[in-house]
Design a protein around this nucleic acid. Structure first.
Lengths: 124, 124
DNA sequence: TTCAACCTTCGAGTGCGCTCCAAGTCAACC
DNA sequence: GGTTGACTTGGAGCGCACTCGAAGGTTGAA
């Protein structure tokens, strides 16, 4: 059973130690990580896996407060799977809509780049 | 020659009147919109077209300060097209990278949704 | 002419997500 | 024993992008 210091966990997740502590006190963790006798945090594999899910949710634009709500549901255990599923599906819808929007804007920007490269005639 | 009040320009661009004024004083506009005799702003087609480009850049994640820099280049007129092009291309690269990242995360979230829907066996 | 609805400026306030600081504890090495 | 460096806490501070408030002028319809 490996466990990591906060610095190691930070390196592995791409977050800072500051952010890991912030997520913890903000209720984003399933449970607070264990502590060494010294009081220092020790991150388990399970903690790391969970933080990686947080990263996926955050990187796709889910607000902290929604991550906290999702964490709360998972923490509460069995019986609320439908609610978790609804939360994830609503998030997925938003992400897909945003992907489509960004892709559309990107195409327009590409067009503008084409103009500057002299490949396309300027319009409007 | 049509020209719009700030409320009309807001409705047309999806921004608020507050935000339009903010963009103007923050140097994002090519030029301040004309004024009626009363001092009220009157937005031209050209203003609207520019605001729509701002919207595309902002919606794809370009920070205000970069939009301001790009506006400055356009304002300065001919001779810096290479710099404008470089700015847009750098932005496009970032957007594409981010699209790829988000798409990857979305797939992982979809997998998790599949688990909750009982379509996929839980892993990890 | 009166009234609501709109506009103006300047500056302050807000929400989000960190990010940092101060003061102290602890482990390891010289 | 002393020093270095990673860790702890609570709370303050910050950057971004708005968002709003106050106090007053303008517009247009009844």
């Amino acid at each position: 059973m490996t466990s990591l210091t906060i610095a190691e966990a930070a390196a592995q997740t791409g977050l800072t130690a500051h952010t890991l502590r912030y997520y913890e006190r903000d209720g984003l963790m399933l449970a607070a990580p264990e502590r060494a006798a010294s009081g220092h945090r020790r991150y388990s594999e399970r903690d790391l896996t969970w933080i990686e899910l947080i990263n996926r949710l955050r990187s796709t634009g889910m607000p902290i407060r929604d991550v906290r709500r999702y964490a709360g549901l998972v923490r509460d255990g069995d019986g609320n799977e439908a609610e978790r599923l609804a939360l994830l599906k609503a998030h997925r819808e938003r992400v897909e809509a945003q992907l489509a929007e960004v892709t559309g804007h990107l195409r327009a920007i590409d067009h503008k780049i084409g103009i500057y490269e002299g490949k396309v005639a300027p319009t409007g």
